[in-house]
Amino acid sequence: MTDAITVTSVSKSFPIPFQRRPMVAVRDVSFRVEAGQVYGLLGPNGSGKSTTLKMILGLVRPTRGTTEIFGRDSEFVASRTSVGFLPESPYFPKYLTGEEMLRFYGKVCGLGGSELRTRIDTLLELVRLTNARTRRLGGYSKGMLQRIGLAQALINDPKVVILDEPTAGVDPAGSREIRDLILDLKARGMTVLLSSHLLEQVQEVCDRVGILAQGELVREGPLRELIAIENRTQLVLENASVELIGEIETRALAAGAQVVEKRNSETTLEKLFLEATQSATRR
């Protein structure tokens, strides 16, 4: 598989005025994002996630190391022909309508004419904002803004899209829509690199994750491998009688295994919330 994004031992330090020692934001980080993957960059605030993304996009220059998009060094503008970016909570001009905003970004990418018009229609359809296309962004909800922001990142039909905290400040329903969109993009073969500090969300969409702490990549690998506990197995049963469970426990103990935990399955709070709010809106 080809690598969509390659980050090779990059470090970034920012000089602090009147201090000899610079602030190190990213320290010797390396990872690769394969084409078609959804990659999650995790870490607490200030761990260097945004700086890493900005280096990949050529907005910030690494002190050491290189970053590439499809083999093109981020230092060159040409590397950005195949990438789209949604920064963390951008503040798009309120006076533009969704459509006008997309047209501006399209023109900035050198698009125009009927090509741009169809592109805008497709994207509005994709992010489900066709009905809001002539409304001003000032009247959009946070979730809608993130979706139009995502459409903006996709305007030049990139092969990679980089999302910085795509669900920050978005309510659970909106958050879910964005998650679905990401899965949708993945289904279309798009590569996605996102950063987040919301672990659950990352867990649901990402194929591979990297965990940053204080500028260092402390863990990196396929999600399943990272979270799997090799010598444990989860068994979820429905309509099992007390006797059956007792029998299984006895058999397990006899075979030398231990039952570590036994409890009723729970729904997640998110699922509960969504079900409750959706049934309320249906009513």
Binding site: G58, L59, P90, F92, Y105, G149, I162
Partner: peptide
């Protein structure tokens, strides 16, 4: 820069 729209523009193939 404050609105972060500059990132959306410069992340596009714009010199």
């Amino acid at each position: 820069i404050e609105d972060r729209t500059i990132y959306t523009i410069l992340a596009k193939p714009v010199h």
